[in-house]
């Protein structure tokens, strides 16, 4: 399937690894000019080389450090991308502080207010800021795609996910509201909620669950996988391909929705 987006300019936040990197890789293979940002300079440099090796002929690759807690840094990164590639057509909002063990674990009595606010600021407000920075370019050209990478906790609240869950839910409403507002300008906004994807950071959650249940990490993993209808973790590439579809010409009538890539794990419909 030709996604029809060769020559489009795509930004992927948190694009140095995991789902973000996989999305950037698929977009680069499809001929998009791809700009990734992240925090770790070493991982960014590695991602840039790998992306350059995978990119379709003529597709440029840009990598830069950007902290989502810093509005000026986000605007600066978008300006660099516009300078280099002439605009922005696609934004994959993906960067997340999910590495922090504090994302998973604290129940009501244990919530640390500053950590809670940090999650709201770094992820939710970070996505808002990136959206705000790219929207003028997309509205001017009359074509745009924004994908907010959310998570399972949005529709599936969990008593140990009191910061991440509400943030993921908020992102679903953000996608729907932005889709209404910017649809007339040709800007399509969706959410993608990855389920259990084998990126490494799910290990933190499994270890916490293992401790709580008094079992080993591998038992916790087996139990977890048994509740996934496809009986396995997904790969970052599978999430990346779904993101690329939402960013593509093939998804031209798809906006305001959430796409779950979770092997059937979600219990709500």
């Amino acid at each position: 399937m030709d996604l029809g987006i060769a020559g489009r300019v795509a930004i992927v936040s948190g694009g140095s690894r995991g789902i973000g990197y996989a999305a950037a890789e698929v977009l680069a293979e499809e001929g998009c000019h791809v700009a990734v940002c992240a925090l770790d300079p070493g991982r960014l440099a590695a991602a840039r080389s790998r992306l350059a090796a995978r990119a379709a002929p003529g597709a440029g690759v840009h990598a830069g450090r950007c902290d989502l807690r810093d509005a000026a840094a986000i605007e600066g990164f978008v300006a660099e991308v516009v300078d280099r590639f002439g605009g922005v057509d696609i934004l994959v909002n993906n960067a997340s502080p999910t590495d922090s063990p504090s994302m998973w674990g604290p129940v009501l009595d244990e919530v640390d207010d500053e950590e809670w606010l940090e999650t709201w600021r770094a992820k939710f407000i970070g996505y808002v800021r990136f959206s705000r920075a790219v929207l003028p370019h997309m509205r001017r050209s009359g074509w745009g795609r924004i994908v907010h990478v959310s998570g399972m906790g949005g529709r599936g609240p969990n008593r140990r996910y009191l910061a991440g869950g509400p943030v993921h839910a908020a992102l679903l409403a953000l996608a729907k509201g932005m889709a209404d507002e910017y649809g007339p300008d040709g800007v399509l906004v969706t959410a993608l909620s990855p389920g259990p994807i084998d990126t490494g950071h799910h290990g933190v959650i499994l270890e916490a669950q293992a401790r709580e249940a008094g079992i080993s990490s591998s038992e916790a993993r087996d139990r977890f996988v048994a509740a996934v209808p496809l009986r396995r973790y997904g790969t970052p590439r599978e999430a990346g391909e779904a993101i690329a579809y939402l960013c593509s010409e093939r998804a031209g009538f798809v906006t305001g929705v959430e796409l779950l890539v979770d092997g059937g794990r979600s219990r709500s419909f």
Binding site: P157, L162, P166, H168, A173, L174, G177, D180, E181
Partner: peptide, 22 residues
Amino acid sequence: PDPRRLPESTAAIAVLNLTKAV
């Protein structure tokens, strides 16, 4: 979600999520 009241809309659905979790 109301596209002109997104801070309120996003916070409201976040509260629904929090409600269920708690």
